[in-house]
Simulated assay, not measured.
Amino acid sequence: MTAVEDVAELDDPDEAKAVLTAVVAALARCLPDTGREWLAGRLPSPEAGPVRDAGPANLESGTDVEAAVARRLRTTPERGRYLTQAVLTALTRTDPALAEELRGRLPRAVVETLRPAGESPRDAASHRPEVPTRLTDEEVARGLRHLTGWSGDRHGIERTVELPADRITPLVERVQREARAMNDHAHVEQVDGGVTFRLLTTREGVVTEPDLWLAERIDEVVAAVGSGGRPG
C-alpha cells in the first residue's frame, strides 16, 4: 500500500487502497477464471476478494482497463491510466516476480497500452474532474459494452427499462438523487411498460465521461430498485 501511495503521489492511505482495489479488479477482468484464482492467491486477502468478484472477463485492452478504473474511481480515463501504471510500477518494486508473471498472463494489448509513460499522475492533462472528457463515437461504443441495455453515440445515450408500474416512481427518484449527487442530469421519459433514461452533457453538446459514470450508476439502481428490469 505504501508503494502505491509513493508512486501514485497520493496523500491518503484510504485513497491508495481504493486505487489498488480498482486496478486489481480491472486487471482481473482481463484474466480467465484460472488466472483470477492465481492472482487472488498471490495477493493479500483485502485485494483477493475484489479479484474473485471483479465481474465478467470482458476487458481486452489497456484502454478498457483504464476506462474501468476511471469509472470505479469516478475520474477521467487519463487519470485512470496513470493510476493503473502507478499500481503496476509499485507491484514491480515490491514483488518483481509477481509483476513479471502477471504481465505474462495479461493480453499483450493490455500490457503494451499500460507501459509507464514517465509522467506523474498529478500531471495528467485531464486530472481535473470538473473538466469533463468529451468522447468520440468509438469511445462511447467501448464504454457501452460494459453497460446493460444502453445504446447511442457521442450525441447521446439511452436505456429503456421495462418494469412494473409501481416500481417506476421509486426508480426515477433514486436515479435523480444519484444524478444530483454526481452533479449530472438524466432526461427521463415514461413509456408504455417502463421508463427511458437519456444522458448527454448539455453544456458540451456531446456525451462525456460523467455520462458513462451515471449510466453505470443507473444500471446499479435498476438492479437494486427495479428488480433488474429488462432492456427495452
Rank of each mutant, 00 (worst) to 15 (best):
R177I: 05
T208P: 12
T34Q: 08
A22P: 07
G55A: 03
V111D: 12
D12C: 07
L171T: 11
R71D: 15
P107Q: 03
P44N: 04
E100L: 11
A28V: 11
V221N: 02
V65L: 09
T76S: 15
G226K: 10
E209T: 13
P56Q: 06
S45W: 14
P13T: 13
D6A: 15
A215C: 03
A179S: 07
P121E: 03
A117I: 10
D64R: 00
R198Y: 00
G62I: 06
D211W: 03
V69L: 03
P50L: 04
E178V: 15
T169E: 12
D137T: 03
R174P: 02
T92V: 07
R145P: 09
D219S: 08
E66I: 05
A70C: 14
P50G: 01
R103V: 03
P46C: 05
E189S: 06
E15Y: 06
V188E: 01
T2F: 12
F197L: 06
E37C: 02
D123C: 11
G226A: 09
P96L: 03
G80I: 07
A223H: 06
D95E: 13
T21S: 08
L163E: 00
L88R: 01
L31R: 07
R203F: 10
E138M: 09
V175M: 08
V221C: 10
R72W: 05
G62C: 05
V221R: 08
R105S: 07
